[in-house]
């Protein structure tokens, strides 16, 4: 387990925009957490699933919602809103789990709604501007402009500590 933590960069970073087969276009899935719109690479997504009851685990951070049974696979789930410091999400049947693969680990992300599938050019992806506290923005990998609005591109690897992932892997195992 510790191995994973010590070598976080050894794999392809799925949060990074993966080049499409035609080179210039990338596809992202955009979703809403609170009023904000975020996006992740579509290739990291395994499945999108309506909200189901999760089994909570003891002694976990607030944003860890526990595990859910995805056709026999135990998947650890995280509350993105909580992770972003917006407090624990009040779930409804219309909330959505995005099942994604991060560093070969499968995790579930609780979001308010899936908005769209974005197909963007490379030049549409802007780097994250320098900010005083980089730590706050370290899990942002870029900003996509779509028409007038902006969508923040998330880096799932950075978003979840290696510990979280390790825990997730352990749980999954």
């Amino acid at each position: 387990m510790n191995d994973h933590v010590e070598s976080p960069e050894q794999e392809e970073i799925s949060g990074e925009p993966s080049s499409a087969q035609n080179g210039n276009f990338h596809q992202f899935i955009s979703f809403k957490v609170g009023n904000e719109e975020f996006a992740i690479d579509i290739m990291a997504v395994r499945e999108i699933k309506g909200w189901t009851e999760t089994a909570p685990l003891p002694n976990q951070p607030d944003y860890n919602l526990g595990v859910l049974n995805l056709r026999g696979t135990i998947v650890p789930t995280f509350d993105l809103g909580c992770r972003f410091g917006m407090g624990r999400t009040e779930t409804t049947p219309y909330h959505v789990f995005i099942i994604a693969t991060v560093q070969e680990r499968t995790i579930g992300l609780l979001v308010d709604a899936v908005s769209d599938i974005l197909t963007v050019n490379d030049d549409q992806i802007r780097p994250v501007p320098d900010m005083e506290r980089m730590t706050a923005a370290e899990f942002l990998s870029g900003i996509i402009t779509v028409e007038e609005s902006m969508v923040v591109l998330l880096s799932l690897e950075k978003l979840f500590h290696t510990g979280d992932l390790a825990n997730a892997a352990e749980i999954a195992a």
Binding site: I42, V45, K49, G50, Y94, V114, I117
Partner: peptide
């Protein structure tokens, strides 16, 4: 409304599958 929601989810999954399928999935997308 619920049916629409579920359909949307299905469509999204289909879109994900299509993206994974690359060019072969374009039509499906």
């Amino acid at each position: 409304d619920e049916i629409a929601f579920q359909t949307n989810l299905l469509a999204l999954n289909a879109a994900v599958e299509a993206a994974r399928a690359g060019d072969a999935g374009k039509g499906f997308a």
